[in-house]
Write a protein that binds this DNA or RNA. Structure first.
Length: 587
RNA sequence: GGGGACGUGGUGCAGCGGUUAGCAUGCCGGUCUGUCACACCGGUGGUCGCGGGUUCGAGUCCCGUCGUCCCCGCCA
């Protein structure tokens, strides 16, 4: 070893020890008669001062930030007036009697000692320097700890970690596949997994009973702050379980991570909302719930309303809903309400009605509908000083628009608590959805999800009414995990394929192996997959999953450090029997 | 596929039609023996992303293009 200690571990009781350290030069503070050198590595920072030694002084003069050096010396207590309490090694320093330069460094093009400045473009190009920043070091280290804690939990609970192939088969449904040409079978392609969904089900059929994998997944879709073309899932599958068993296991995992890594103990069970409740109360299937302000039905107050635009909406089968703004309604100026109005109009609503309960109940429709304000205040239980925002429209549009407005208003009023752990399950998703573009039913979760047995009996001919045994875990307004109980009978599986317009032939061609496997004894099974990057992002309070990934890509899918994607030599294409269409290759 | 923001010394920003493009930081040199974003003094450093247009005159206005970021669509 080139070192006896790392840069973060020396303490007051190490005083007097002879040590050898290695690391990067963080800063040199040259006071003329004395030079302080700050040495860093991933463990921390330690101050080095030269001993009474001309050779050391000479080497020290040559050093610049980011040089990699090795320092031998003695640990000494800092003078009382120079003790620092904000870093763990702040009570000591190393008196160097030897400094060796292991590697020189050019002046870095971006700062490595501070956070939150450089453009992402440069950060990504010089990722190795960006990753030296304290915040990035912290994020990557925490990610490791979170992943290991997850493994620990799953191992304790009898799960087997099993790898599945990256070279898979392209399947219909879902996201666009990344494909990989096959040299040995020219003209044919593998697909990179969007998730190991089918294989984990096959592993259940194979009898492995409890499986997990930190699985890399690939989806060739447009990027977002929380979406990368390749990302990691904590993929879990269990046999002989029912919905609540999977939910409890996953909930246990989240609680375990929060307790072990973040020292936050959650005793209560996570809330559970049905999809329908979520949509009616929050207008979204991934709601933020901790600040309240749920959407309320107001239709009964407006049955004989003289307000024409509301009457018109109700006659067309629409409804009227709103939410309480619990305080500070006097700060809702005309201008502010106008901007909210504009926002909901862009989301498809006609406008916005405001109610204030500041001095006395007042609202924007008082003149047309005298007395309505008091009724609303009473019905919605608007506290003194508060108010409400109300709108009318077609139910789905109304829910969505008010749901977005609700979060915006809460944000503007500072009601969103960044330290809150807002965790809940959404259950009872619809099994199918109508896809206008493709003019057919599609599976809302995926086609291997078990339809709700009650609904199968109750509405065998009305698939849109059928719920599924799917569930999502929502954390601080993000979907962080989703899963379902799977179908374990060939007949039911074929029925689902039929409903979503996959023919017998197609089903056999694309999923034949699963259908065949299902003939050989399938345990009832189900599972869940966590978006690991998102989970870590939220836990570390980051705004983008790029901040918790070592080598993320840009919004156009480029790796700025490697320069991927890139052209490949013609020879390579020839070997693969691939011809690139004209005008598509850049120089 | 669509909408929006940004692009100016190495880095982060200012300049919004008119002399020589400014500030901070970095970098280089100097002074300084307890600093900790050391301080102070001096200096270096920019064809204003690229192309075209408008104008007597463009970093500034217009069009296009490239890049980065955010959002909608898309992401079972």
């Amino acid at each position: 070893m080139l070192r006896t200690h790392n840069c973060g571990e020396l303490r007051i009781n190490d005083v007097g020890k002879k040590v050898t350290l290695a690391g990067w030069v963080d800063k040199i503070r040259d006071l003329g008669g004395i030079r302080f050198l700050i040495l860093k590595d991933r463990y921390g920072y330690i101050q080095v001062v030269p001993g009474d030694n001309e050779k050391v002084a000479e080497t020290l003069r040559k050093l610049k930030p980011e040089y990699v050096i090795r320092v031998s010396g003695t640990v000494r207590k800092r003078p009382d007036e120079a003790v620092r309490t904000d870093i763990p090694t702040g009570q000591v320093e190393v008196v160097a009697d030897e400094i060796e330069i292991l590697s020189e460094a050019q002046t870095p093009p971006i700062y490595t000692d501070r956070d939150d400045d450089t453009s992402e473009e440069l950060r990504l190009k010089y990722r190795y320097l960006d990753l030296r920043k304290p915040r990035m070091q912290h994020n990557i280290i925490m990610r490791h700890r979170i992943v290991q804690t997850i493994r620990e939990y799953l191992n304790k609970n009898g799960f087997l970690e099993i790898e599945t192939p990256m070279l898979m088969k392209s399947t219909p449904e879902g996201a666009r596949d990344f494909i990989v040409p096959s040299r040995l079978r020219p003209g044919k392609f593998y697909a990179l997994p969007q998730s190991p969904q089918l294989l984990k089900q096959i592993l259940m059929i194979a009898g492995f009973d409890r499986y997990y994998q930190i699985a890399r997944c690939f989806r060739d879709e447009d990027l977002r702050a929380d979406r990368q073309p390749e990302f990691s899932q904590i993929d879990i599958e269990m046999s002989f379980v029912e919905r609540d068993d999977v939910i409890e296991m996953a909930e246990g995992l989240v609680k375990y991570v929060l307790e072990k890594v973040f020292n936050r103990k959650l005793d209560k069970q996570f809330k559970r909302l049905t999809y329908e409740e979520a949509m009616e109360k929050y207008g979204t299937d991934k709601p933020l719930t901790h600040f309240g302000m749920e959407l309320q039905e107001l239709e009964e107050l407006f049955y004989d309303t003289p307000v024409n635009f509301i009457k018109a909406v109700l006659e067309k089968g629409g409804t009227i809903k709103g939410f309480v703004v619990p305080r500070d309604m006097s700060s809702f100026t005309r201008k502010r309400i106008d901007s909210y109005t504009k926002m909901v109009q862009e989301l498809g609503l006609g406008g916005l009605i405001w109610v204030k309960n500041v001095d006395e109940p007042r609202s924007s429709i008082d003149r047309i509908s005298p007395g309505i304000s008091s009724k609303i205040v009473e019905h919605m239980k608007i506290p003194k000083g508060g108010g409400a925002l109300i709108a009318a429209g077609e139910r789905e549009v109304l829910n969505e628009a008010l749901g977005i407005l609700r979060v915006k208003v809460a944000q503007d009023m500072g009601m969103i608590d960044a330290d809150e752990l807002d965790l809940l399950w959404i259950i009872d998703f619809p099994m199918f959805e109508w896809d206008d573009e493709e003019n057919r039913l599609v599976a809302r979760h995926h086609p291997f999800t078990m339809p709700h047995p009650e609904d199968m009996k109750a509405y065998p001919d009305d698939p849109l009414k059928i719920r599924s045994l799917a569930y999502d875990l929502v954390m601080n307004g993000n979907e962080i995990a989703g899963g379902s109980i799977r179908i374990h009978s060939t007949e039911l599986q074929r029925w689902v394929f039929e409903k979503i317009g996959i023919t017998e032939n197609e089903a056999n061609e694309k999923f034949g192996f699963l259908l065949e496997a299902m003939r050989y004894g399938v345990p009832p099974h189900g599972g869940i997959a966590f978006g690991l990057d998102r989970f870590v992002m939220i836990l570390l309070k980051e705004k983008s999953i790029r901040e918790v990934m070592a080598f993320p890509k840009t919004t156009t899918g480029a790796d700025l450090m490697m320069g991927a994607p890139s052209n490949v030599p013609d020879e390579m294409l020839k070997e693969l029997k691939i011809r690139v269409m004209e005008n598509t290759r850049e120089v």
